[in-house]
């Protein structure tokens, strides 16, 4: 490589390293703002803002969804398997909303600890499978659970 080309190569590498470091520092500084949502554990630990709206993400706890008398208001629990927060929402829920599903809701935390949401979004996971495979997995899981229970009963 000629010295001029070498110089230009170093220049390109320096540009890349400089921009990379600057971006890295900026992203570390704004880490909190880049989080799309807070988890129930963070909310319980008091890390979520109380004075302005924020997003809360988690899984809908199985069996926690209650529809109110007006037919539009829903109360459910969001959990990250450690902590849980009760969410109240009035409006239309997305297609993928169901128990056990990942959800991101936007709203404010009330004084009573209930999160009043004005937007509920379903978070899709990265798994794609045909219905019969999902059924088979579920049956296998249930049988597995029953098997363990049976074993425990015998013992």
């Amino acid at each position: 490589m000629t010295p001029r080309r070498k110089k230009r190569l170093y220049l390109v590498l320096i540009i890349l390293a400089g921009i990379g470091t600057a971006t890295g520092l900026a992203l570390t500084a704004f880490d909190e703002n880049l989080m799309f949502f807070y988890s129930p554990t963070e909310v319980r630990a008091g890390k979520a803002p109380t004075d302005h709206p924020f997003r809360l993400g988690g899984l809908v706890t199985e069996g926690s969804v209650e529809r109110q008398a007006d037919g539009l208001t829903v109360r459910f629990e969001l959990t990250d398997t450690q902590e849980a927060v009760t969410v109240q929402y009035t409006g239309i829920l997305p297609d993928l909303f169901r128990e056990g599903q990942g959800i991101v809701s936007k709203g404010r935390l009330g004084a009573d600890g209930v999160f009043v949401a004005d937007e509920v979004l379903a978070k899709h996971d990265e798994n794609y499978m045909p219905p019969e495979v999902a059924d088979a997995l579920k049956t296998a899981h249930e049988q597995g659970v029953q098997g363990t229970q049976a074993k425990t009963a015998v013992q």
Partner: peptide, 21 residues
């Protein structure tokens, strides 16, 4: 992977087996 996002994580371009049929 670095931040909480609404967009789901990688299905195919990861080190584990792809989580797709």
């Amino acid at each position: 992977e670095w931040w909480n996002t609404l967009h789901q994580g990688p299905t195919v371009t990861k080190f584990d087996a792809p989580s797709i049929d």
